[in-house]
C-alpha cells in the first residue's frame, strides 16, 4: 500500500474549489493524466459511480469509481469499484483567513504488480508530482479567471 499526500492552495473559496476538484466530470480539465470521465448513475454526489481513464507512465488505466463522501466545501472521498488495482482518494478543504482554500489530498493505492519493476517509492513520487503540477496549474487558472458574478 502506498499513501501519497499533498497539501496545496487554491486562490478561491472552499466551495469553488470543491466544485472543481470533487466533481469527477471536471477531472480532465485540470488533471493532465486524466484522459476521460463519465458518470454512470446520476448527478455527482455520495454514492455516485463514474468511469475514469488515466494515461500514466505510458499506460492507459481504466477504473470505475464510487464517491463515498461528498460534503460541499468540506470533504469528498472516492473508492475504486473496478480497475487494475484498488485506490482510495480524498480531498479535505480548509478555509484560510483570507477566504481562500488549503486542500489536503490523500491517495492510498495498492498497485500490486501492475507497475511491474517500478519501485513503489517512485510511483508515490510520480503521483505526488502529478498532483503538484496539476494543482499548481489549476491554482494559476483559478487566479486568472474572473471572480464569479
Amino acid at each position: 500500500m502506498i499513501r501519497a499526500e499533498y497539501r496545496f492552495h487554491l486562490p478561491v473559496p472552499p466551495e469553488q474549489g470543491f466544485d472543481v476538484l470533487s466533481d469527477p466530470t471536471r477531472d480532465p480539465e485540470w488533471q493532465s493524466a486524466c484522459a476521460h470521465t463519465r458518470l454512470l448513475d446520476g448527478a455527482v454526489g455520495a454514492g455516485c459511480r463514474y468511469e475514469i481513464a488515466f494515461q500514466i507512465l505510458g499506460r492507459r488505466l481504466d477504473f470505475t469509481v464510487e464517491i463515498t463522501d461528498f460534503i460541499p466545501g468540506r470533504h469528498s472521498r472516492f473508492v475504486t469499484v473496478e480497475g487494475p488495482f484498488r485506490y482510495v482518494g480524498s480531498y479535505h478543504y480548509h478555509r484560510r483567513a483570507d477566504g481562500t482554500t488549503d486542500v489536503q489530498w490523500t491517495f492510498d493505492v495498492d498497485p500490486g504488480d501492475y507497475f511491474g519493476i517500478l519501485p513503489e517509492v517512485l510511483l508515490k513520487k510520480v503521483l505526488i508530482n502529478q498532483v503538484k503540477k496539476d494543482s499548481s496549474s489549476l491554482s494559476k487558472q483559478l487566479a486568472a479567471a474572473p471572480p464569479p458574478s
Binding site: L57, I117, L118, P119, L122, K133
Partner: peptide
C-alpha cells in the same frame, strides 16, 4: 527509471 519518468512528464 526516475529519469525516464521525469523525461516523459
Amino acid at each position: 527509471l526516475a529519469n525516464g519518468i521525469a523525461l516523459q512528464t
